[in-house]
Design a protein around this nucleic acid. Structure first.
Length: 699
DNA sequence: GAGCACTGC
C-alpha cells in the first residue's frame, strides 16, 4: 500500500514539475557554443571537400592531427610505393565494420585491397594495401618488425580514448618515425641488428619515412600537437545534429529517482523518439528496469506503449541484440545501458539521453596491487560523448541530472588508462622492443615512477628480468611473446617443468576471459546445482579445467554424429544454457587456448598432462601464483601475504563455504569488500619450498 | 553472499 502511494505521488510530482521547473534549458548550451567556436576559429571545411585537403596535408606533413568526427575511411583512399596504410582502432568491432564499409565503398572484396586483422581473425592478403587493425595488434607486430617496415602511413583513430595500447603505440610510433628518418640510429644495437637483417631481405633498401596521422574526436588537440613537436592540427566539423543540454536547478540527492522522474517526464511530454539512460552497472539497470515496469502499469493505457531494454556487456548476445531492434509502431524504446553505449555500440533512433553523470571506473593502487571498481563522476569529454548520442540522426535533447555549475567542475577528460593500471605488461613489451630505460621513455603522459618501479620489481620476481633489469633469456623473451598477462605466461613456462602444461593452458585460457559461469537471480539454485557437476574440492582452477574438458568432450561427441557446423554450435549453446555457462566466454576461451597452444608449441615446450595427479598441478599453481597467497584468520577472513590486506573469498568461488587454511588466488578486487577470486587450496609449506626467492626471507 | 568498459601476430 505504502509503495503504491509513494509511486502515485511521484507520478504526480512529475506532472507538477514540468521541464521548465525541473530542468534549466540551455538552448545556447556550452556544447553548441563550443562546436560553433571551433568552426569559427579554425578553418573548418564541409566533409566532402575535406578529403582532398587531408591528402594534401599528409603529403606535406610528417605528422598530422585530425580533430573531429571525421567519418573514418575518408582519409584512406590512397596509398603509395606498394606499402601498406595501417589504421588502428581501440576496438575489434570498429576495425571490422570500418574495413567492411571501406571495401564496399571501393567496390573490392574484403580481404583484397582493403582488409582487417584482429586477434583470432585475419582478413588480409598479399594485395591488401589498406589494413584496419586493433592498436594492440600493431603493438604485437612491432615485436617482430620493430621499424614497422611494411607501413608507409599509420593512422591512429580514436586517439582521444587514450587506452593503454594507444598510448604505448603513440610513444613507439614517435620513436619509429624518428629512426626511419635518421636511418635507424635512434634504436639501440640489438634492434639495429634485427633491422639490418630485415633490410637485407628487402634487398637492402632504406625504409621510406613513416607518416603518421592521429585522429581524435576530442576538442583538445593541443596535447597531441604538443607531444608530436608542434604537429599541424586540422579541425573538421562533425556531422552531428544539435543537442539541447538541460541541467537540473538543484543537485539531485537520489540520481536513480531523478532518472525515473526524467524518463517519465520525457515519455509523457516529449515527442516520439527513443530514450537512452546511462546507469553504472547491471544491478542498477535491473532495479530501474523493475521500477519503470511497475510505474508504466499505472499510466493510462495509451501511454503504456514502452519497450524497456537493458544493455550491458555481460548480457548474452541474443539479449543484447534486443537493444538494436526497432520498437513496434507507436512504442517508445527506453534503453538502460552502462558505458557500453557510450562508445562501443551505437543504437539508432535515440533522441533523448538521460545522464546522471556517473560511471563505474577501474582504479588501481600500485602500492597494494589492488584493483577496485568505484563510482565516480564522468569527465566533461565523457558527458559530451554521452549527449552526442542523442544527435546522431535528428536534433536531440540531453538531460544532465546535475546543475550546470557541477559540469564546469568536472575534469576535462578521463585520466588516461596508463596512469591507473598495472604496467607489468607494458614494461615487458617495451623491454622486448629493446627499450631499456622505461622511466626515461617518452610517454605521452608518464605513469608514476612508483608504478613503473613496482612493475619492474614484479617482473624481476617472475624471472622475466635479470638483476640488471634487462630482459632475461629465455624466460623473459618467451614471456614477452605470449599475448597474456605476464604472470600467466610465467605459469605456462613453469607448467612445462611441472609436466602439467596441458592443464595450465586450459587455466590461462579460462582466466583470460570474462566470467564463465552465470548466476541469474531467479534461477540461483538451479545454477548452483549445475556447477556442482564440475566442482572440485581443490578450488576454482580445477573446476575450470573440468568445465573446459567437459565442453570439449561434448563437442567431440557432437562432431561424431553431426557434421553440420550450425547445428553443432546450436547444440553447444543448449549445453551451455543447461549448465549455466556463458557460451560467449567459453568460445573465447577456446580461441585463446588454441592461439596460446600454437605459441607454446613453437617455443618447443612439450604439452604434457599430469593426469590425475592434481597435487602436482596445485604445486605448479603455487609456484606460479606465489605472489597471490592468503592465510585464514581466526574470524574466517584472510590475510593476503604480500600486501597484508584483509580479504574475503568471493561468493562465486567453490571454496566460499570450505574456507581452507591457505590459498592462492588470481584476482583481488575491491567492490563492497576486498574480494579474492579464482582460488585453489594449497599447503602453506609449499610457499617457501616453491618460491624461495620470495618466502625464504619472510615468515 | 555478488559481476564498469575495452583489448592482445
Amino acid at each position: 500500500m505504502a509503495d503504491t502511494h509513494k509511486n502515485t505521488e511521484k507520478t504526480h510530482h512529475l506532472g507538477l514539475h514540468k521541464k521548465a521547473k525541473y530542468f534549466e534549458a540551455k538552448d545556447t548550451s556550452s556544447y553548441r557554443i563550443r562546436n560553433q567556436s571551433i568552426a569559427e576559429q579554425r578553418r573548418s571545411l564541409p566533409i566532402t571537400s575535406v578529403e582532398k585537403r587531408i591528402v594534401e596535408e599528409i603529403k606535406n606533413n610528417k605528422i598530422l592531427i585530425i580533430v573531429g568526427e571525421t567519418g573514418s575511411g575518408k582519409t584512406t583512399r590512397f596509398c603509395h610505393n606498394g606499402k601498406v596504410i595501417g589504421i588502428t582502432q581501440p576496438r575489434r568491432v570498429a576495425a571490422v565494420t570500418v574495413a567492411k564499409r571501406v571495401s564496399e565503398e571501393c567496390s573490392t572484396q574484403l580481404g583484397q585491397k582493403v582488409g582487417y586483422s584482429i586477434r583470432f581473425d585475419d582478413k588480409t592478403s598479399k594485395s591488401t594495401r589498406i589494413k584496419y587493425m586493433t592498436d594492440g595488434l600493431l603493438l604485437r607486430e612491432a615485436l617482430l618488425d620493430p621499424f614497422l617496415s611494411r607501413y608507409s602511413i599509420i593512422i591512429v583513430d580514436e586517439a582521444h580514448e587514450r587506452t593503454v595500447h594507444t598510448d604505448v603505440l603513440l610513444g613507439l610510433l614517435k620513436r619509429v618515425q624518428k629512426s626511419r628518418s635518421t636511418g635507424g640510429h635512434f634504436m639501440n644495437d640489438e634492434i639495429q641488428f634485427k633491422t639490418s637483417q630485415c633490410q637485407k631481405s628487402h634487398g637492402g633498401l632504406n625504409l621510406p619515412p613513416l607518416k603518421l596521422v592521429i585522429m581524435s574526436a576530442s576538442l583538445n588537440a593541443g596535447v597531441f600537437s604538443e607531444y608530436f613537436d608542434g604537429a599541424k592540427a586540422v579541425h573538421i566539423q562533425g556531422r552531428q545534429h544539435p543537442v539541447d543540454i538541460l541541467y537540473t536547478f538543484q543537485p539531485e540527492p537520489d540520481y536513480l529517482d531523478a532518472a525515473m522522474i526524467t524518463i517519465f517526464q520525457v515519455h509523457l511530454d516529449e515527442e516520439p523518439g527513443d530514450i537512452l539512460v546511462f546507469l553504472t552497472g547491471q544491478e542498477e539497470i535491473e532495479s530501474v528496469e523493475r521500477l519503470v515496469k511497475e510505474r508504466v502499469c499505472q499510466l493510462a493505457e495509451d501511454k503504456q506503449k514502452v519497450l524497456i531494454v537493458p544493455m550491458y556487456s555481460s548480457l548474452p548476445s541474443e539479449q543484447q541484440m534486443a537493444a538494436f531492434k526497432k520498437a513496434p509502431p507507436g512504442f517508445r524504446k527506453i534503453i538502460l545501458a552502462t558505458n557500453i553505449a557510450e562508445t562501443s555500440v551505437t543504437i539508432s533512433g535515440i533522441k533523448y539521453v538521460i545522464d546522471p553523470g556517473l560511471v563505474k571506473a577501474r582504479s588501481y593502487n600500485h602500492l597494494t596491487g589492488m584493483e577496485s571498481l568505484i563510482t565516480v563522476p564522468v569527465s566533461k569529454a565523457q558527458a559530451i560523448q554521452r549527449s552526442g548520442r542523442a544527435g546522431r540522426e535528428v536534433p536531440g535533447m540531453c538531460f544532465r541530472l546535475y546543475p550546470e555549475n557541477e559540469f564546469s567542475k568536472l575534469a576535462d577528460s578521463t585520466v588516461p588508462e596508463i596512469k591507473r593500471c598495472n604496467l607489468s605488461n607494458v614494461v615487458l613489451q617495451l623491454k622486448a622492443l629493446g627499450i631499456d630505460d622505461i622511466i626515461g621513455f617518452d610517454f605521452m603522459e608518464k605513469p608514476s615512477r612508483m608504478s613503473i618501479l613496482k612493475s619492474l620489481e614484479q617482473l624481476l620476481l617472475l624471472g622475466a628480468l635479470t638483476d640488471e633489469y634487462k630482459l632475461s633469456d629465455p624466460i623473459g623473451k618467451q614471456m614477452s611473446q605470449l599475448p597474456l598477462d605476464p604472470i600467466y605466461s610465467k605459469a605456462l613456462i613453469l607448467a612445462g617443468e611441472f609436466k602439467c602444461l596441458e592443464e595450465m593452458l586450459i587455466i590461462v585460457a579460462m582466466l583470460s576471459v570474462e566470467s564463465i559461469f552465470f548466476f541469474p537471480r531467479e534461477k540461483l539454485e538451479e545454477a548452483r546445482a549445475a556447477r556442482k557437476n564440475f566442482s572440485s574440492v581443490d578450488g576454482d582452477h580445477i573446476t575450470l579445467v573440468n568445465v573446459f574438458r567437459s565442453s570439449l568432450e561434448f563437442l567431440d561427441k557432437l562432431k561424431l554424429t553431426i557434421n553440420n557446423e550450425k547445428s553443432i554450435s546450436k547444440n553447444l549453446l543448449k549445453w551451455c544454457k543447461e549448465n549455466f555457462i556463458n557460451n560467449r566466454s567459453l568460445r573465447h576461451a577456446r580461441d585463446v587456448h588454441s592461439q596460446i597452444q600454437g605459441h607454446v608449441q613453437q617455443m618447443g615446450l612439450s604439452i604434457t598432462s599430469c593426469g590425475l595427479d592434481m597435487l602436482q598441478f596445485r604445486r605448479c599453481l603455487t609456484a606460479a601464483f606465489f605472489l597471490n597467497a592468503a592465510l585464514k584468520r581466526t574470524d574466517g577472513s584472510y590475510r593476503a601475504i604480500s600486501g597484508g590486506q584483509t580479504v574475503q573469498i568471493h561468493p562465486s568461488s567453490v571454496l566460499f563455504h570450505t574456507k581452507p587454511e591457505c590459498i592462492i588466488f588470481n584476482e583481488l578486487v575491491k567492490t563492497n569488500h576486498n574480494y579474492i577470486r579464482n582460488l585453489t587450496r594449497i599447503d602453506p609449506l609449499w610457499l617457501p619450498e616453491l618460491a624461495p626467492q620470495y618466502y625464504a626471507t619472510q615468515n
